[in-house]
Design a protein around this nucleic acid. Structure first.
Lengths: 325, 325
DNA sequence: TTGTAAGCGTTATCAG
DNA sequence: CTGATAACGCTTACAA
């Protein structure tokens, strides 16, 4: 395959001139530019980007670290990231980790090995201190609340969002409230639990372990949990659910079990996914697409101007009132 | 940052020996290997993969070309691809094209520019002849029926699947059948239309243009189309719907409009997504995750052994009978 | 405006 | 088993 050298020889110019044409540099005469372009076409020249990556030290690509691809939450974030990456001619490398720490480390190592210019972390099981160690190799942006760190983060205040939802339920007369999370040891789950404890103690209600349900991720989990709730001798009158798809599963299963929503069980979802609009699910919009897009913008900015201070950007959530409470 | 040369100097060996250690080559004495490894740790050595990519001519990464990230159909395919890529230590570059041909061309150009070792195309708007031109630069696998081509493909027989669904409906007494597609000019839509025509003419039923509905992609489209159907003076007694999420949208909207399923309208979905199990939707399982995984395997095989003949692999679909017909 | 030449950090070849 | 040395294909001072 033809390379820059052959083009130069055939066009009767120097290698640098060819390179200049390739990079749209000024200071190359129209005549030579035309000649170079012509020979490129003749020889079907294709630039070897790996050589460019090597010499420039950049790859114009960023990794997305996420536990699982096939989930609406991550899809929505990715959609936002993807749009912005496209606009800036950046490639996105999809890194599915399944929350395995060695897989997650491999992604971080990619940064060290200059395979990518930066990383966007959607969710992780690796301790944040360990992630910070990689900041020296390139920018990292986390889509979760991480406090003041060496990397940037973008997030909604889960504690406040959860509180808002709780207070809404309380105002509607609920005192027996349960909630589900996807992974109890995640940071947003911890924030929710804390908010839950606070509101409960303000209400003077005891904390019932069986109303805190872990491992609620997708629609099928939601349905299973609804069955579980139905079998309880004393069940909550309202549930705050991990995400809208899980909530949709609960809603559907409730219908099958003859439990009416919101009369017998109020449900609040999360994420404002399309399905929630369709089902009339009250939910909290955390603006996933915007968040993804902004995450990429922050990363891109760090790549363009290194040595900038990391940022902690909070995204406002919105309470979407519909008919499931 | 330390490079192989510095390691060599400090360890008191040659560059080649360091490279051999790096690549787990035999013929390196334990003593030197240990010394190299030790200095690598001291200097926090990180390999520059771009140099490796340049000299080896491989990047161990493949592109996924798809129109939109945030859709269950593509998510399921990607999940399958992602698992297999992970197992083979391959990176996946996500290329969202929105069915824009110039964006799609950029992905193909990545192959020419050696940025990637191969491409998996999930859906495309580019004429297949144009895609074939890029096969000289590296392997391409399409997840759609493409006939005998220079690239490999993996697919289900949409024509046969559609026919099976039609015949099932006919056996249940339906004669007024409509269908939706996502994009009328896609190959699977054409296959469906053809099968539709055939069965209709066998039945002696006229083809009613208004019962063929284009642009039905997601849940919200399904809901909107249900409204549209409800407003028809004469509507079909059964619908074959693009995908399960769209079908779910129809189902939900039907409930709101007081149209009972399957009594007043039978619905068959597509893809056997989790939502269809939950809603009791009769559907056709086209085994998206398996298809994605197999697509990667075919690609990987082509990468490992170039100059192999392209394959056309058909995946069997399964008719999943539930309660929406 | 153009050309020369020095890298970028590896792997591959080939001779010891 | 080990080590020079030549690629890989490009960008970028620097000099003209």
């Amino acid at each position: 395959m033809a390379n820059i050298k052959e083009i130069a020889k055939l066009a009767g110019v120097s290698i640098s001139t060819v390179s200049r044409v390739l990079n749209d540099h000024p200071y190359v005469s129209d005549e030579k530019r035309a000649r170079v372009l012509e020979t490129m076409k003749q020889l079907k020249y294709a630039r070897n980007m790996n050589a460019v990556h090597l010499i420039t030290g950049k790859t114009k690509s960023a990794a997305i670290m996420l536990p699982i691809i096939n989930h609406a939450y991550f899809s929505a974030l990715m959609e936002g990231i993807g749009g912005e990456a496209l606009a800036n001619h950046y490639r996105l490398v999809l890194c599915q980790t399944g929350y395995e720490q060695d897989k997650e480390r491999e992604v971080l190592e990619m940064l060290r090995n200059r395979e990518i210019d930066g990383i966007i972390i959607l969710s992780t099981a690796t301790p944040l201190e360990q992630i910070e160690e990689y900041c020296r190799y390139g920018p990292i942006v986390c889509c979760l609340e991480a406090g003041k760190r060496a990397f940037s983060s973008i997030f909604i205040d889960h504690s406040r969002a959860f509180r808002a939802a709780m207070e809404y339920l309380v105002a509607k007369g609920h005192r027996h409230i349960g909630f589900t999370v996807g992974r109890m040891d995640g940071p947003s789950s911890r924030a929710r639990l804390e908010a839950y404890r606070e509101v409960l103690s303000e209400l003077g209600e005891p904390l019932r372990e069986e109303w805190i349900i872990d491992g609620c991720v997708d629609m099928e989990d939601g349905a299973a949990i609804m069955k579980q709730l139905a079998a309880m001798s004393k069940r909550p009158s309202a549930m705050l659910v991990t995400g809208d798809h899980a909530a949709a599963g609960m809603l559907w299963e409730a219908g099958k079990l003859g439990i009416s929503v919101p009369e017998q069980l109020a449900i609040i979802g999360f994420d404002n996914q399309p399905i929630s609009g369709l089902l009339g699910l009250t939910t909290i919009d955390n603006r996933l697409m915007d968040m993804g897009a902004e995450a990429f913008r922050i990363l891109f900015n760090h790549i363009q101007e290194p040595d900038q201070e990391p940022v902690q950007r909070e995204v406002d959530f919105m309470f979407i009132e519909r008919t499931s409470v």
